[in-house]
Nucleic acid binder design. Structure first.
Length: 920
RNA sequence: CCGGAUGUGGUGAAAUUGGUAGACACGUCAGACUUAGGAUCUGAUGCCGUAAGGUGUGGGGGUUCGAGUCCCUCCAUCCGGACCA
């Protein structure tokens, strides 16, 4: 009987399905464990071999934990709202709901092929009304909440209103600023619109005007993390700044807690680094400078107040309005010309070519400590959106300031003595200050605090923390997303009641944009007019649903709540989250914020969503090329291509064996085009060129898992993906080698059945040698699986099966336990053989065997001795030997005595690998 | 430029606290059984050398009886952020 993997896999997948073996209960005496994959966006391209890598890893771990006695939640779903489906609809005329549905069916079929243990009864789709009802509901909670700075948490907006009604909003000290501060009486006198505008300034989901990343080609705004080098992440279209009315999430209020939270989660260093860079916390001071002959003050932000005496000029961002008020008569023309120039430059140009540009305004700021007059310049290298949009330039300490000073011949003051060489700036904090008045002789880092205290006392500045992170743009001018549960009346955003949810996404056939950059929904007049107002016509961005989906899996059918407190208390944090690094600053930050917010409202009991995060590496494609001679249908082999003038053409990797092209298949490929191709061979072969690239259909380097599953079976495919190397590592795909894993499974099969003899497994008692092999394997597999070293895990199985084959061990006692170990890695074949051995219940509920030390101990063995690490001999020592016994045996040994030539050894080191080192 | 990660055979890679480097697999070579084999099995396989032996984890230096592993320094590759004051 041979290993008929196709029949076996089909049989067990059906059986598991019928018997609902993967359904998990929220009620169990077992401890819980939550294993989560980043749910996929169901694209039309289907899965390639890179996608299931993380899923297989999590599947193995989930099954392993189940065998270990945990109640394991391992769900899957689809992030089914988003831009590409809509783009596809516009280009091909297929409604997003339809194409998304098709894609999901296709994904599901492909996933099922691999034999995952997902509990599909808990599947979520972000585009389903019973899901997005709760996305809208959470949005309303965000809208109806504000961030309290004293309690450092979100509170209901009603508390803020109550505060305004009793105490107003007055400054802690100093006079109230009109437009910002008001008394309770004033509050009561405000119109509804005024009140609404004031509250909007504190809501966690708010509507405001702001510079947004506008992508003309996509017809929508993008969040900062969706823009890469001035072009859109999806599609690579140019992105420009544009002022629009937008919804935002006030994620900046959570900046500190998002940063602190990183300390208590198990993420990789680089992941934490990426997130904290994105948040970009810096601390320093804001300092006011008087402006000569002007009532205005110039406020700058600096992280280095200690360099205050090294300030040689000021630079303000061209966008700041004060530019026009401070420019001198003489400089007016120059300034206006410069402003026009800046306006003409796109964001992209500014990013791409970093020219040193700027102009003197003619105005001077006064150094508050020594009265020095400092020229004020404007330059595009200072960003209006960060800090105060103005800086104090210290050319001896900051390279950009230095280059600017050199370019415009501004004299440079040196405050750091020999640390500054005149060639480049030195940003050290360890120099001793010179030319610095009252802080002369101090170490720079100590001076920072002293200067801040000083300016605070003088009332000319404050200590200040800044973040690079901006509030997240939360609206899109698109169709295929969650509608907002908001109705506008007289300029006031009115939230809908819970009973009015979900706001269903109305069906539309024509998805052309509405007027004035609004989304397609704007064209639906009937839908838009609602309750004597108009609905918000933007939709939520792709990350809305994914910010909380992991909670919905816990309680997917609840129609009263997004997730009951009982369910979220039971499952708690995601114990293990697996996904790619590409979500480092988007999804991962947003979902962390939503979790903290829901925690603040007491709706869940934990404030970090993920306990441990694993990043799977990207599987790249290994592309193959053929070289066509110009103007002909001749193809020249790689080694000879330099003798001709050729075009490099991607060729389907599936018709190339290693680097050798199957020329007959090539002729058939792309019917018509290469039918009469001729080949110039080397050594009778056509050799292809090789390059590692991103896996993509257009490069013909994708490998479809379905083909491999068809050819070798799901178990082989699963194990091979793991065998490739560590899960976290990126690597190019190479199908060569899958045979080795397949051979292993066939070898395993032969421990049960022989092709000629039939059944070979028996119920004889296992010998110590056989048990030793088994227990070594149990121990190793447990360790490998626990520390996510699935590649060595696969190797461990191979070694075990090789050993058992050598021992001719066909004993049930041994094989049965081996199958349980193997079940997470190769579930189908394990299940089959498990039943062959006469077990009725599924192997899924077996329990992971325990290894016994007794079988791992060596009885006696020869151990090497090294003298001064040079020469070696072997001694036979018993196990559990004491240091003294070792020394005695070593000293009695003839060879050792001969080496020592009568000298006494300084020390005898007996180490754990049983090696003995004698030092003379 | 800054930050993070990674450098080990022809290839993918092991080596958990410093302890016989290269497990396991691919590939290659030789052999067995075969009408045949791109099936199966057995053996060999880091490099130099017929051999004894030497040498070897990106380069250089250090700590140690002992370093792939720890420290310093340089180089290369990959990823991320880059005018953030």
């Amino acid at each position: 009987m041979e290993y008929r993997f196709r029949d076996i896999e089909k049989k067990w997948q059906e059986w598991w399905n019928e018997n609902k073996v993967y359904e998990v209960s929220n009620d169990s005496a077992k401890p819980k464990y939550y294993v989560l994959d980043m749910f996929p966006y169901p694209s039309g391209a289907g899965l390639h071999v890179g996608h299931p890598l993380g899923y297989i890893a999590s599947d193995i771990y989930a099954r392993f934990k189940r065998l270990k006695g945990f109640n394991v939640l391992h769900p899957m779903g689809y992030d089914s709202f988003g831009l590409p489906a809509e783009q596809y609809a516009i280009e091909h005329g297929i409604h997003p709901a339809e194409s998304t549905g098709n894609n999901i069916n296709n994904f599901r079929k492909q996933l099922d092929n691999v034999g995952f243990c997902f509990d599909w009864s808990r599947e979520v789709r972000t585009s389903e009304p019973n899901f997005y009802k709760w996305t809208q509901w959470i949005f309303l909670q965000l809208f109806n909440s504000y961030f309290c700075h004293t309690e450092k948490k979100a509170l209901p907006i009603s508390k803020l209103i109550a505060k305004y009604e009793t105490r107003g909003a007055m400054p802690k000290n100093g006079p109230p600023i009109p437009g910002k501060h008001f008394s309770a009486t004033q509050w009561k006198g405000f119109s509804e619109k005024e009140k609404s505008d004031i509250l909007m300034r504190r809501r966690l989901a708010y509507c405001g005007y702001g510079e947004v990343n506008w992508c003309e080609a996509l017809g929508t705004v993008l969040a900062n993390d969706e823009v890469i080098n001035g072009v859109s992440e999806r599609g690579g279209h140019p992105v420009v700044k544009k002022t629009l009315r937008q919804w935002y999430l006030r994620i900046t209020e959570y900046a500190d807690r998002l940063l602190e939270g990183l300390q208590k989660v198990d993420f990789s260093e680089s992941m934490k680094e990426m997130q904290s860079n994105w948040i970009g916390k810096s601390s320093g001071a804001e300092i006011d400078f008087e402006i000569k002959k002007s009532p205005l003050k110039l406020r700058v932000y600096t992280t280095r107040p200690d360099t205050i005496f090294g300030v040689d000029f000021m630079v303000i961002a061209p966008e700041l309005e004060m530019v026009n008020e401070i420019k001198s008569k003489e400089q007016t023309i120059a300034v206006d010309e410069y402003l026009a120039y800046v306006k003409s430059r796109s964001e992209r140009e500014r990013m791409a070519e970093k020219k040193i540009t700027g102009v003197f305004t003619g105005a001077y700021a006064i150094n508050p400590f020594n009265g020095r007059e400092i020229p004020i310049w404007i330059s595009e290298y200072v960003l209006a959106g960060y800090g105060t949009g103005a800086i104090m330039a210290v050319p001896c300490g900051d390279q950009r300031d230095f280059l600017f000073a050199k370019h415009f011949n501004i004299p440079i003051t040196n405050i750091i003595g020999s640390h500054y060489n005149g060639e480049e700036a030195n940003p050290t904090k360890d120099a001793i200050l010179e030319n610095s008045d009252f802080i002369n002789g101090m170490v720079m880092k100590d001076a920072i605090d002293i200067v801040i205290k000083n300016i605070e006392e003088k009332g000319i500045g404050v200590r200040k923390v800044n973040y690079k992170m901006r509030d997240a743009a939360f609206s899109r001018q698109r169709y295929w997303g969650e509608p907002f549960p908001i109705v506008w009346k007289d300029g006031i955003a009115d939230p809908l009641n819970e009973s009015e949810l979900p706001v269903l996404l109305p069906h539309m056939d024509d998805l052309k944009p509405g007027p004035d950059g609004e989304g397609p929904l704007s064209n639906l007049t009937e839908w838009k007019n609602y309750k004597s107002g108009t609905r918000e016509v933007n939709t939520m961005p792709g990350y809305a649903g994914s910010s909380w989906y992991f909670l919905r899996y816990m309680d997917p059918d609840n129609d009263k709540q997004f997730c009951s407190r009982k369910a979220s208390d039971y499952w708690g944090q995601v114990d293990l989250y697996i996904g790619g690094t590409e979500h480092a600053v988007g999804h991962l930050l947003y979902s962390r914020m939503w979790t903290k917010f829901l925690f603040d409202l007491g709706l869940i009991g934990h404030d970090e969503p993920y306990k441990r995060l694993m990043n799977q590496g990207m599987i790249q494609g290994s592309s193959r090329f053929v070289y066509r001679v110009h103007g002909s249908n001749k193809f020249v082999s790689y080694g000879l291509k330099d003798q001709y003038s050729t075009d490099q053409i991607h060729v389907n990797v599936n018709i190339v064996d290693g680097v050798e092209l199957d020329t007959e298949e090539f002729k058939k490929w792309k019917r018509g085009e290469f039918d009469d191709a001729e080949f110039i061979l080397e050594d009778g072969k056509y050799i292809c060129g090789v390059e590692v690239e991103k896996m993509s259909k257009s490069k013909f380097n994708t490998v479809n898992p379905d083909d491999l599953v068809m050819k070798y079976g799901a178990d082989t495919f699963r194990m091979y993906e793991m065998f490739l190397g560590p899960v976290e590592m990126s690597k190019p795909w190479d199908t060569k080698g899958i045979e080795g894993v397949h051979r292993f499974l066939k070898k395993l099969w032969r421990l049960f059945y022989d092709e000629l003899k039939g059944k070979v497994w028996n119920e004889e008692k296992a010998t110590d040698a056989e048990l030793k092999v088994l227990h070594k394997t149990i121990k190793k597999i447990e360790e490998d699986t626990e520390r996510f070293s699935f590649n060595t895990g696969v190797s461990t199985f191979m070694i075990c099966v090789n050993d058992l084959t050598d021992l001719k061990c066909y004993k049930k006692e041994v094989l049965e336990q081996l199958l349980v170990l193997l079940a997470p890695y190769a579930p189908h074949v394990s299940e089959e053989l498990w039943s062959v051995l006469g077990n009725s219940a599924t192997i899924l509920d077996a329990s992971f065997p325990k290894w016994n030390d007794k079988y791992l101990k060596e009885t006696s063995k020869a151990y090497p001795v090294a003298i001064n690490g040079k020469t070696r001999t072997e001694l036979t020592l018993a196990l559990d030997i004491t240091q003294q016994q070792v020394e005695e045996i070593v000293m009695k040994d003839a060879i050792v005595t001969k080496w020592l030539e009568g000298k006494q050894p300084k020390k005898i080191i007996y180490v754990k690998n049983k090696m003995i080192n004698v030092v003379v």
